[in-house]
Design a protein around this nucleic acid. Structure first.
Lengths: 114, 114
DNA sequence: TGATATACTGTGTTGTACGATGTATATGCA
DNA sequence: TGCATATACATCGTACAACACAGTATATCA
């Protein structure tokens, strides 16, 4: 039990949240998601985490996928698009995320006024 | 995979964070922590979650405990106090928590400007 | 031959949340 | 006496996401 372990635990759920927030914006392909998240070490994750996550979201029909040929002779890319079900899921997540921020903020506040 | 599952996942790490934030304020006993967290459904947890968590924190020496007799004939209470090591751990968590909020905020921001 | 970018797969481990259940003390009610 | 309720702590087993480690495959460029 240390801060590194905690950072790994805190990603549970948050990673899924981040990925859906990205895909809601526009279609993303897997490698692109990994690169985007790398910018933020606290939510960075490698292939062995992101691809299973994308597969779970596909299976739950929160996202859909389609292959696109690359223009520069690169391997084709699988683009992921959010579905209507995914949008509803994400909206529910956003509400719960706000609840979480409120809860932690108030618990922290008790440190000053409790 | 649904919002209820996600709420359970999001508690990973956050619960530990909340418990330490509470205990930093003043000594708390287990049942009191459970009652406090019940006020916020997103971080609410039962005995089977909180007591193992407290035992892990004790084992890691992030908190210490002492039994106190109850004044009204109720069962004795085990009070938990944060240690110096626990304070350092909590400070590191606070920094990472801010990183997380920044990351999610910027990823959300990409929805508007990206 | 090697590096880089893209894209996906598989095995096994770890650790936390949580369902279910148990132990124990004291009060209140019929 | 019997039963419910509140308080207070504990144990057992399961599910699952993150992740370490490793591998497969295509295509470009030096």
């Amino acid at each position: 039990m240390n801060v590194e372990d905690w950072k790994s635990q805190i990603k549970r759920g948050t990673l899924e949240f981040c990925v859906l927030l990205l895909i809601k914006q526009r279609p993303y392909y897997g490698y692109e998601i990994i690169s985007m998240l790398e910018q933020y070490p606290i939510v960075a994750a490698k292939e062995n985490t992101i691809y299973p996550l994308l597969r779970r979201l596909l299976k739950g029909e929160y996202i859909s996928s389609s292959w696109q040929e690359s223009t520069e002779g690169l391997p084709p890319r699988k683009y992921y698009t959010i579905t209507e079900k995914g949008n509803e899921y994400l909206n529910a997540m956003c509400l719960e995320w706000d609840n979480l921020l409120t809860a932690i903020s108030e618990i922290k506040g008790a440190l000053n006024y409790g």
